[in-house]
């Protein structure tokens, strides 16, 4: 690991001011960044530790929740209001990593974690445009079982590994950001970029900008929501496919529906086309499958991950059937 200066910030203004003075990375729980630094894939000149910034979950005036960026993943998952009003978020967090890692990882760090593409990690032996722009992508034509079927480019087919973000995408979460130029709100769905020709630029955040919290709005679909993760072992593994969904049925018709997919793109993938087709219909498995066929028609697969199309379709349909209480 290369040497770096370490600073521990006690409030966001202090964090911004230290980060502004030197090219720095913000440090949360360190579960991803410390590992990447040990591999010399990340080599920041300075770390600004933001894991001790105020870590609170508070009620908002609109009946939602504001989750501080420094709150640890396990604390969010176990929070009574999250468990009852946003079960998809609690379940998604519990599907991620291990208990030890969830005790360390922060909400902000979870959002900004980097892909687990093996070629990205293999600095000694693999080409990766995300790690070294212009060097090529060994995942294309390589072992790409875990890679993207949506939104990839000829430069990168890596996926975003977060479970939490898939739930946040389904919940239309809004990310609060503070930066040298002031504060702004970014919808979670707009925060991560697709790779295009710059897979090394992963979010719309500007240098020095700091995630301070995530806001959730209340809804019936959020309260009636679920998360399901399909993976190569039953726990402590990244997703092949994951599904976050919420459903509100009024008078036998779908009044609100949210479907987000994980493990399929460089960002959490909201299935807007399927949602649009299902809104206003009465819930039935055949209709779910037809809507997903339409959604997945845009998928582009590789040798190793073509199975994800059928797997995504069936997993989403199973979750929607469960939420709707209809025969799977």
């Amino acid at each position: 690991m290369r040497s770096f200066d370490y600073h521990c910030a006690t409030n966001p203004a202090e964090a911004l001011s230290i980060a502004g003075a030197a090219p720095a990375r913000y440090l949360g729980g360190g579960t991803n960044l410390v590992d990447l630094m040990r591999q010399n894939i990340e080599a920041p000149a300075a770390l600004v530790d933001v894991s001790r910034l105020p870590a609170v979950i508070e009620e908002t005036p609109n009946g939602g929740l504001l989750i501080g960026a420094a709150v640890r993943n396990n604390v969010v998952a176990a929070h009574p209001s999250v468990r009852t009003r946003y079960p998809v978020l609690s379940r998604a967090l519990l599907a991620g990593a291990s208990a030890q890692i969830r005790n360390m990882a922060t909400v902000g760090g979870n959002i900004l974690q980097r892909t687990r593409c093996a070629y990205f990690y293999d600095a000694a032996g693999s080409h990766c445009n995300k790690r070294e722009p212009g060097s090529g992508c060994d995942a294309i034509g390589g072992f790409n079982r875990y890679h993207a079927i949506f939104g990839a480019s000829e430069h990168c087919i890596a996926t975003h590994p977060s479970d939490m973000c898939v739930a946040l995408a389904a919940l239309d979460a809004v990310v609060h950001v503070k930066g040298p130029g002031g504060e702004r709100d970014v919808p979670l769905l707009d925060l991560h970029r697709l790779p295009g020709d710059r897979p090394d630029i992963e979010t719309v955040l500007q240098p020095g900008e700091l995630i301070t919290g995530v806001a959730l709005s209340p809804s019936a679909a959020a309260a009636h929501s679920a998360y399901r993760k399909v993976r190569d072992r039953s726990s402590y593994a990244f997703a092949l496919i994951s599904v976050a969904a919420g459903l509100e049925v009024v008078d036998g018709r779908i009044a609100d529906i949210r479907i987000a997919l994980g493990g399929v793109a460089a960002k959490p993938w909201r299935a807007l086309r399927a949602e649009e087709m299902l809104l206003g219909t009465d819930p039935a498995k055949e209709r779910f499958l037809a809507a997903l066929d339409a959604e997945l028609a845009a998928a582009k697969t590789f040798d190793g991950n073509a199975f994800k199309v059928e797997l995504a379709k069936r997993t989403v349909a199973a979750v929607l059937c469960e939420l709707a209480g209809v025969n799977p």
Partner: peptide, 20 residues
């Protein structure tokens, strides 16, 4: 795995300075 302030964590990914 060790226990820090009651929570189990991975000591390999914890910078010692973060345990101040």
């Amino acid at each position: 795995t060790v226990i820090v302030d009651g929570a189990r964590v991975l000591s390999c990914l914890t910078l010692a300075v973060q345990a101040d």
